[in-house]
Design a binder for these strands. Structure first.
Lengths: 209, 209
DNA sequence: TCGTGGCTTGACCAAATGGTAAAAAACATC
DNA sequence: GATGTTTTTTACCATTTGGTCAAGCCACGA
């Protein structure tokens, strides 16, 4: 059996293991992000991965284990941009850089965005603790930082928490509601660019003192 | 059999029919909005409605029929506020009134918001045509209206389509991502009010010439 | 070349799921 | 209270689903 990523029993995984686990996770990202956890089936994941169902279960302990692994990987990447906001930097530049990265991520990783959206919409049954323990402290820290920037007159004053919510809401909207966006504003690259420009201009206007 | 809302064969439904159909739709809204279409089960819906599964199927032709009926009812209510934006009114007032109504609806009908979000995230497989035929014309019309307002200098200039997307994204965020909001900003009524104030102030700032 | 251990598969299983048929119960109307 | 109609339930069914198991395959080092 392949070592199931136990911290203690950690032998280096074979090339086949790396390849197949990657294939499974990629396929599962497709399926979970489109149908949610309960709506996704192992058969779909197996077929999308080009493996048999028992073979999928050879690499992961079950449907939930795949989902958990995806969410864990997601959270790490998802939090990084926020964490990188630098207290020493120029406030407006830092926030605009964060927004730009968020937009880019939603564009580059729409499946991850939808996976997260699905999980939250369903009440965060599997990622709840993660939110509490990892996201909350970071959120609070960055709220305090932004509040400080505002207090010292270097940013327009508003509620930092709701500001962050607004950034998340708008940037993720283009990934999560892509089906709607495509209907209402057809056209691929031009629309994408105009979206980026709109969002950046909007927050720059809002945040500039 | 109860008449399945056929336009031609329309006898008035009995009181029991009205009551039970309502119960089923309410229960289904709970279940669908939480798990998505594929993740929801008839047993869950039946139990939530306090009826047996065959009894549920006595009132609706199947799982999909319930879902379709919910989405149809949803679209009608969902589009109303946008449709009510009055070309003769004062531009800023009209837009702010629309935003206020959107916020209120997200607060009052979070299940509907999540039902819609689930459907769109999954690629709008069942509501796609509806979007094309009903939402798109309305969206285009209101975009033109807003564009006109901006052209005549009565609103700050920006892309009308993306403006609407921003409004939708932010207002629905508080309903769809409630699980996350509750973790990051605990507290019920105060948070709700501060959210409303933040969003309204934000768009007012943005739209004022 | 031959084991040997990691990898893969076909066959299978129990539970869940969407749905059906027909009888029983409840109801309305005369 | 008899009678026809609507509503509800009991007992099913076929398929799907998450998961198991033992046997077979295959790569690779000795």
């Amino acid at each position: 059996m392949p070592q199931t990523a136990s911290a203690t029993t950690a032998k280096k995984p074979s090339r086949i293991q790396v390849r197949n686990r990657r294939k499974i996770l990629d396929a599962a990202l497709d399926v979970f992000s489109q149908h949610g956890f309960r709506g996704a089936t192992l058969d779909q994941i197996a077929e999308a991965a080009g493996l048999s169902k028992p073979n999928v279960l050879y690499y992961f302990d079950g449907k939930e284990a795949i989902h958990v692994e995806l969410l864990n990987a997601l959270m790490a990447e998802w939090l990084a941009p926020l964490a990188e906001m630098n207290p020493q930097g120029e406030p407006l530049d830092e926030l605009m850089a964060y927004i730009a990265r968020k937009i880019e991520m939603s564009h580059t990783y729409p499946r991850e965005s939808r996976l997260f959206a699905n999980e939250i919409i369903q009440g965060a049954p599997r990622i709840g603790p993660h939110l509490d323990q990892r996201l909350k402290p970071l959120f609070d820290e960055k709220c305090a930082l932004i509040q400080n920037w505002m207090d010292t007159g270097r940013l327009a004053v508003m509620h930092p928490g709701h500001l962050i919510f607004s950034i998340w809401a708008i940037t993720q909207h283009y990934a999560d509601f892509d089906a709607q966006v495509q209907v209402l504003m057809p056209g691929t690259e031009a629309a994408q660019n105009s979206a980026r420009e709109h969002v950046e201009r909007m927050f720059r206007t809002l945040l500039t003192v």
